[in-house]
């Protein structure tokens, strides 16, 4: 799909309209004007046939309408959503965004504050507050608020992203080192898949972090947090550390994973456990491999066998020469025999 797939959205079929809106929702395209067009000309004809998808579409159209200053349409969507989900935070957020678009900033901020009180971990409200300050041109305050926002995000985001990255890197290196069974499932692919399922397991990861001896890095204060460099240092540190984990630490790791009070997370924990087991198994495999290869490399055997083969080469040469000689000599014999015959023949004639 090209970025500029210009189309007359007013005449597409109901199904195409529905599919297009879904696509734009999924890849978070900001094609507000076209969303409004699709809604008004195509989908609003029969909202009831959209099933439960209609609520997501109302939300999408509402935001798009605010973007196009179509406050009437936005209000319509909010009212429909409010009827279905009375006093929902998600609908309140739309209401606050409407205030924002109408430049009633103090109303918007007080609504966001109320939402934050109810759910302080939802960072999207903080993000909206930052953008209100930006819209008012209050840069300094915006930066302050943004710091607050980052404080909350980074604490959860940094490790879960770098943890997955570490696992991926180790797996990749392992695959590279071994090269065993190239047709089989690659560890890197496995870890990547598992990594996607690791969301929301910060607690578990911090335990892993502690055992691996990289936990002190996460104590960095949020204000001087440079996410990128922190990630890098975690990566460089974690990567080498993982290869040095002591067996007892791994045991501890395993016991924390199987603690009974973590039961509700059972399934997800199992995947983590699986991936950690894999890494551990592969580390021991690697060590074994290293241990086995060392004496081979150190031993005299290689040099001896080299001499052997050189000797073999020599023998072969002799044989070849001998062969040549015997072939030549048989030719000489042949010639001599014929010469003899000719000689006898000439003598008998004379």
């Amino acid at each position: 799909m090209g970025y500029l797939e210009t189309k007359d959205w007013t005449i597409v079929s109901f199904e195409v309209g529905r599919k297009t809106l879904r696509e734009w929702r999924e890849d978070q395209s900001r094609r507000s004007e076209e969303v409004v067009e699709l809604w008004e000309h195509v989908l609003s004809r029969s909202p009831s046939s959209l099933g439960d998808e209609v609520w997501m579409i109302y939300e999408q159209v509402c935001i798009a309408a605010l973007d196009c200053a179509r406050y009437d349409l936005a209000m319509e969507c909010i009212q429909e959503l409010d009827k279905r989900f009375p006093r929902s935070n998600r609908v309140l957020k739309l209401q606050a965004m409407r205030y924002e678009a109408l430049e009633q900033y103090s109303n918007a901020v007080s609504l966001y504050d109320k939402l934050l009180e109810a759910d302080s971990t939802n960072n999207s409200y903080r993000k909206r507050k930052v953008s209100i300050l930006m819209a008012q041109g209050k840069r300094l305050e915006a930066i302050k608020e943004l710091n607050e926002y980052l404080k909350v995000t980074t604490q959860c985001a940094v490790f879960s992203s770098s943890g997955a990255a570490i696992a991926e890197k180790i797996a990749e290196r392992y695959d590279e080192l071994t090269g065993i069974n190239p047709e089989g499932p690659r560890l890197a692919d496995l870890v990547r898949t598992i990594g996607k399922q690791m969301d929301g397991l910060e607690e578990r990861l911090s335990e892993v972090e502690r055992v691996l001896g990289i936990s002190e890095l996460s104590e960095v204060s949020a204000a001087d947090l440079d996410v990128e460099s922190l990630r890098k240092s975690l990566l460089s540190k974690g990567d080498s550390q993982v290869f040095k984990i002591k067996m007892e630490d791994l045991q501890k790791l395993k016991s924390t994973m199987t603690e009974p009070n973590m039961k509700p997370l059972d399934e997800k924990l199992n995947t983590i456990q699986f991936y950690e087991d894999l890494i551990r198994k592969h580390i021991s495999l690697l060590e074994e491999w290293d241990a086995n290869i060392q004496p081979v490399q150190d031993s005299e055997a290689i040099r001896t066998s080299e001499q052997h083969s050189a000797a073999l080469d020599l023998n072969e040469g002799f044989e070849r020469i001998a062969g040549n000689v015997s072939e030549g000599s048989s030719r000489v014999d042949d010639f001599l025999r014929r010469f003899q015959k000719t000689h006898e023949y000439i003598e008998s004639k004379s």
Binding site: G2, Y3, L4, T6, E33, E34
Partner: peptide
């Protein structure tokens, strides 16, 4: 205006 393409769009999709 929906047809307008800038260099950033071009980097995303060289056909533009």
């Amino acid at each position: 205006y929906r047809e307008l393409v800038d260099f950033e769009n071009h980097l995303d999709n060289p056909e533009l």
